[in-house]
């Protein structure tokens, strides 16, 4: 394992070192020590490497990730994994707001809770949260899956498109155009595979599915209150 000390070599050097890892690098295991809440740690990675951040991070850790697996052995700041394309991010603690914003692919796993706007404008990413999520989560979610083993806050899935939401606990309120949906066998199967991939032990049958009512898909003045 290669160790990078953020306090010693600085952010630019940490990220440049990780960016320099090519597709077929032999050095696949990295750790970053002393993150101390710094921003933009391990963002823009694009290689099949595994990076463990030993501590809590600031804004945009693992932003726009491709291929890499990033483990955050602490809590994660706002916008972690924003616009993730592929690969995996695992957060041992809690995640702040905007987790996985606009993510296009890959998976994000949160062992603790995720804050507000989790999965905002998600475009294909899969997010699995072991605890609860905050308000306005998956606002304008376009595609991908958001799995919540705990409770969801206010306005879940407001103005969503084709993203799917699976919640085991309570939903404080649903956002505009988001409705409860039937859990069909294919959804149970999908949910099981997501939970397995996330390494989280939970029974898919205990979850409820939510998604778009598709009433806002084409403008109608009688829906004006929802805009």
């Amino acid at each position: 394992m290669q160790t990078l000390d953020l306090q010693e070599i600085g952010l630019r050097e940490v990220n440049a070192t990780l960016h320099a890892q090519a597709e077929n690098t032999n050095q696949t295991a990295w750790e970053i020590v002393n993150p101390k809440g710094a921003h933009a740690i391990a963002c823009g990675l694009d290689a099949p490497i595994e990076v463990t951040v030993r501590g809590s991070t600031g804004y945009y850790c693992a932003g726009m990730n491709q291929q890499a697996t990033v483990n955050i052995a602490g809590s994660a700041g706002p916008g972690t994994g924003e616009n993730i394309m592929s690969g995996k991010i695992v957060i041992e603690g809690d995640a702040s707001q905007y987790l996985g914003a606009t993510g296009h692919g890959g998976m994000i796993v949160v062992k603790g809770n995720a804050s507000s706007r989790c999965g905002i404008s998600m475009k294909g990413v899969n997010i699995v949260v072991q605890g609860n999520i905050g308000h306005m989560s998956a606002f304008m979610g376009q595609s991908g899956n958001l799995v919540v083993c705990g409770d969801a806050g206010d306005a879940l899935g407001d103005s969503c498109y084709e993203a799917r939401f699976f919640v085991r606990g309570s939903v404080k309120s649903l956002g505009a155009d988001c409705v409860k949906k039937e859990m069909r066998p294919e959804h149970l199967e999908l949910l099981k595979s997501l939970l397995d991939e996330a390494g989280i032990d939970a029974d898919p049958s205990e979850f409820t599915r939510y998604g778009s009512a598709r009433n806002l898909y084409n403008f109608d003045v009688d829906n004006a209150g929802a805009y």
Binding site: K36, G37, A38, S56, G58, S75, G77, D94, S96
Partner: peptide, 22 residues
């Protein structure tokens, strides 16, 4: 405002850390 501000407090590793609700 950010977690960075808290990192040097004594015992921060074992503190309860959370974001205030809206």
């Amino acid at each position: 405002s950010e977690y960075r501000a808290l990192v040097n407090l004594p015992g921060i590793e074992d503190a309860r850390v959370w974001e205030p609700e809206p």
